[in-house]
Amino acid sequence: MAELLQHLVNGLVLGGTYALLGIGLTLIFGLMNVVNFAHGEFYTLGAYATFAALGLAGANFFAAVLAAIACGAVLGALCEQALLRPLRAESIDTTMLVMIGVWIAMQNAELLIWGGVAKSIPHPFPTAPLVLGPVSIAPLRAFVLVLAAGLIVMAYLAIHRTRLGTAMRATFQDRDTAALMGVRIHRMHTVTFAFGSGLAAAAGALLGPVFLAYPSMGDLASLKAFSVVILGGLGNLPGATLGGLLLGIAEELGAGYISSGYRDAVGFVIIILVLLLRPAGLFTKQERIG
């Protein structure tokens, strides 16, 4: 029983990180229809930016996390303006290839700048775990979980309760009508991409200290983010959140009670089932026609 509780806590913490990765991608992939293979690289960028802000500029940990988010958003905006804007009329395949190029270029740039040796990002939290009866959790992980929840709620409110969010959704539902209503289409594209990239960088800034920062860390992050988006349904923020938690807990229980060698397989089996039975995503309402 104690073991099961610990597995559930681990799964919740892991799922929270997957949800954080997924919500950034669900905006870019789900709303903008850009298959963003570079999502994991913005995650890596967030981790390295935090490391740089702490080590080189001597910033406070929380200031470093904010700087990393800003860094991800700015680079995301630049990326959208320079690479995606000229290709707006092109098919989804073209932008996908461009994003694969961005992924390779960013990953190798990270290797060039930081080298292959993993970096440990210092954080101000005690390393001794918080013990609650039979379960324990590291203070940093508890902080990450709380902050991830905060970011997810904030992103949801920004998209569903603000004018900017309404304009954003309108742009990707029907460009021409939105433009006729006075929405600045180009700006909406840039803002959405920057928002998604900023969320990926936030995930990197928060998870970098939990794990380690190294150039290929984004590959696994991308894979998990895509899984979460498929589970939750494209562009669906609550779906990505629940999808992330579901994936985290499924992997954890699979590794704990089936076999740790098949940990990732458990996650993918669920995805295959979802694609077969509910191809629009687990948490998507029936699609409207017209």
Partner: peptide, 10 residues
């Protein structure tokens, strides 16, 4: 893999 908590709990 970066999160080995499941294995360690087991």
């Amino acid at each position: 893999a970066t999160d080995m908590n499941a294995q360690l709990t087991k």
